[in-house]
Computed example of a mutant assay.
Amino acid sequence: MAEFWRSTALPHLEARRSCQENTCYRPHTHDSFSIGVIDAGTSVLTGPLDGTIRLEPGDVVVIPAGQVHACNPDAGRWLYQMVHMDQNWAVSLAPCKGASRQFDGIRVLRRPDLHRRVSVLNDAIFTDEAREPIEAQFAALFAELEAASPAHLATSDADPELLARLAPVMRRLRHAESNPALGELAGMVGMTKYQLVRAMRRATGLSPLAWRQNARIVQARRMLRGGRPIAETAHALGFTDQSHFHRVFRAHVAASPGTYRG
Rank of each mutant, 00 (worst) to 15 (best):
E3G: 00
F4H: 05
L13H: 07
E14M: 13
S18W: 01
S18K: 01
Q20E: 02
E21L: 03
T23K: 04
P27W: 04
H28I: 09
H30Y: 13
D31W: 05
D31P: 06
S32V: 01
F33P: 01
V37Q: 02
I38T: 13
G41V: 10
S43G: 15
S43Y: 07
V44D: 06
L45A: 07
L45H: 05
T46V: 12
P48I: 08
I53H: 11
L55I: 12
G58R: 08
G58W: 11
G58A: 07
V60S: 03
Q67M: 14
H69D: 04
C71M: 07
N72F: 10
P73L: 04
D74S: 14
D74L: 14
G76P: 08
R77N: 08
R77S: 14
W78G: 00
W78N: 00
W78E: 00
V83L: 15
D86L: 01
N88D: 14
N88F: 05
W89T: 04
V91P: 00
S92A: 15
P95E: 08
K97G: 03
K97L: 12
A99K: 13
A99N: 11
D104E: 11
G105T: 03
R107Y: 12
R107W: 12
R107E: 02
L109C: 06
H115I: 05
R116D: 15
R116L: 15
V118Y: 05
D128W: 08
D128A: 15
R131V: 14
E135H: 09
A136T: 14
Q137A: 13
Q137V: 06
F138T: 04
A139R: 15
A140E: 15
F142L: 15
E144C: 12
E144A: 14
L145S: 02
L145R: 00
A154S: 13
A158H: 09
D159R: 06
D159K: 01
E161Y: 02
A164D: 10
A164M: 08
L166G: 03
A167D: 15
A167P: 04
V169P: 01
M170S: 05
R174F: 09
H175E: 11
E177W: 10
E177Y: 03
P180T: 07
A181L: 14
L185D: 09
G187F: 04
G190Y: 07
Y194A: 11
Q195L: 12
R198E: 14
A199H: 01
T204Q: 06
L206N: 08
P208A: 08
A210M: 12
A210K: 02
A215W: 00
A215L: 01
V218D: 01
V218Y: 02
R221A: 08
R222G: 00
R225E: 01
G227C: 07
G227V: 02
A231C: 11
A231R: 04
A231L: 13
E232V: 13
T233R: 09
A234Q: 10
A234T: 10
H244D: 10
H244A: 14
F245N: 03
F245V: 09
V248I: 15
H252T: 00
H252K: 03
V253Y: 03
V253R: 06
A255I: 00
S256N: 05
S256Q: 02
T259A: 15
Y260A: 00
Y260W: 06
